[in-house]
Nucleic acid binder design. Structure first.
Lengths: 344, 344
DNA sequence: TTGAAAGCGGTACCAA
DNA sequence: TTGGTACCGCTTTCAA
């Protein structure tokens, strides 16, 4: 920061005190119009920008919010959420500090400490693991809003997705097409979103009087490979191949689709497939997957609203502002060509 | 920021002055070991984190760098570059303020002003338009490092990609496979990266004694549609269809591939295709496009190195540090299955 | 209408 | 070995 002009710089040029300049620039009622005009012109000329760090230091405020994610892009949706957060924050004169933890809890904690030290007023964290005690310790009294699939509903500030709702919509969509033999394909257990999908799926199926079938592809990662594995399990089972499949993620769905086609089954002719997350598929004409879109824009805006409410009104002021500390968002179904009527 | 403990808090508890506490925590040589231990323990207990804004204010330093991009994700590569920047910055105790301009010059400028006000020491900007005068004005004396395809080589601090090199590699790769009739497919002109690709292509072809053929798909956006349009132009021309095609972007390449196949031509059997940018295709088994990868990791690291050098040593201190203010990065070819030997 | 003084949290300098 | 004082840039309070 090569030294920029300060109030003092302008004060000297104008032959005033720095206090008068400060007041003039902020349109204080006790400065003459003439002085104001003169000061503002000078400020413009020298390219004055107030030092917000100094201002915040005195006012005991913050004009930044922090955000920490496991990674940007890389098949997460945090890039899209960030776009919304950045815009919503800018409209309210807030900057966003962003940190990518590369899925390392150590780096994640380090980002927390650095951001707290750098005076973020609140943090929005998509943690890379479900245990967030170290994160909360590192943040001390700075409020933390959790987002993402690792978070349970017990955190004081959390924006969650209602994957049970996805399950209900899936079952409604598929039964509406005449399907009765429907399987859910998931992977490794240590994932709260998966658990919700499984529970929601079982519940929705039972409500329709159908038997839920859940196939877990071992401890595979969330990849296409898991989808292929799950389909292998399905095909090698004694039971007939279901007429419709819901996959816990889009990559699984792609993998499952490949495996089915490799076995001579057509999608959606023989088997309908539903995914989850709507990853970039708008761009690829080959992949016409029926899937779920999570409302990124709403989540981003809500995160900023909550963060700034916490900064401006404090942890106890939320209720006055009618701000819910915990909010749940419902994914919505995007119907494309991978689902069709049941033919068997 | 609910008021956190400060040096004064600890000083009162320890019965010392806040100055002694400050020194103790920073291991000053003139504080007794006993006092240091006592102070550090207290600091730990109360969860003390130094206020970096106050420290930086006094020291006239900055511990944050800013970054502004047109958008995260959304088929840009800035998400990947950011991941690198975030990590490299964290290793040097710097936080990153990130802003997404949503491709709006107004919002872009606003982000600049806000970040400069919030005391970023340097800015890394991928502008949304080629004219960057307003950006530089908004940043005042804060140094700006430009990245991305909108930037010409005249900016004082810039990290660029050498698309001429891509052209040379493409022509070398394709001629090595026996191709002699090679076309470059581009779109609307107002893009510096396209110009470089066109120039580089012409030059490389001529060096191989071949006639360069360049098809511009009107003013289409950088989409698959442009690829389809360009192929239509190729097919309706009198000249024979080339045996190999280089597309200015991966989306064009996908579009071109589709259009060719729709006309009964196989890839790479009849026509080889090369793209540019390597967008997510590792994840899609169907798309085995030969394309270019730009060295995101290197660009990110270089950006941080340059930014921090500018912060620590100033604009005149770069030469001492052997830091080049302008650097060019060479994309490298990723050979997959969309290119093969020429058969005609 | 203007400005002097104090304070936000931290560090450097110098005196005790 | 310790601490008082001054200062970074800004705003608020209160006196001139």
């Amino acid at each position: 920061m090569p030294n920029r002009p300060t109030l003092k710089t302008i004060a000297q040029m104008a032959g005033l005190s720095h206090v008068a300049v400060s007041k003039a620039l902020r349109d204080a009622p006790d400065i003459s119009a003439a002085t104001k005009a003169r000061v503002k012109k000078l400020a413009e000329q020298v390219g004055y920008t107030p030092n917000l760090a100094a201002r915040n230091l005195y006012l005991q405020r913050s004009s930044t919010i922090g955000m920490i994610v496991p990674a940007m892009g890389d098949s997460t949706a945090y890039d899209l959420i960030f776009n919304e957060i950045s815009q919503a924050a800018a409209e309210l004169d807030f900057c966003v500090m962003l940190g990518s933890s590369h899925r390392s809890p150590q780096l994640e904690e380090r980002h927390c400490r650095m951001m707290v030290g750098n005076q973020v007023g609140a943090l929005i964290v998509a943690p890379c693991a479900s245990n967030v005690t170290r994160i909360k310790a590192a943040c001390g009294t700075t409020p933390v809003i959790f987002i993402g699939g690792k978070i349970g509903p017990e955190e004081p500030y959390a924006l969650l997705c209602d994957y049970r709702h996805s399950a209900a919509l899936t079952v409604r969509h598929l039964t509406g097409l005449g399907h009765r033999d429907i399987a859910l394909l998931t992977y490794g257990p240590e994932n709260l979103t998966i658990l919700q999908k499984e529970e929601g799926f079982s519940q929705a199926m039972e409500q329709h009087g159908l038997r839920p079938r859940i196939i877990r592809a071992g401890h595979a990662e969330n990849t296409m490979e898991a989808g292929r594995q799950a389909v292998s399990l399905l095909l090698s089972a004694e039971a007939p191949v279901p007429t419709a499949i819901w996959c816990a993620s889009d990559y699984m769905a792609i993998g499952a689709m490949h495996a089915l086609r490799a076995h001579g089954l057509s999608v959606p002719g023989d088997v309908s497939i539903v995914g989850h997350d709507n990853l970039y598929f708008d761009l690829y004409p080959d992949i016409r997957l029926t899937t779920f879109r999570t409302p990124m824009a709403e989540i981003g805006k809500a995160a900023v609203r909550l963060a700034i409410a916490l900064i401006e009104y404090g942890e106890n002021g939320l209720s006055q502002q009618n701000m819910a500390p915990r909010q749940s968002f419902q994914p919505f179904l995007v119907v494309r060509d991978s689902t069709g009527p049941a033919c068997r």
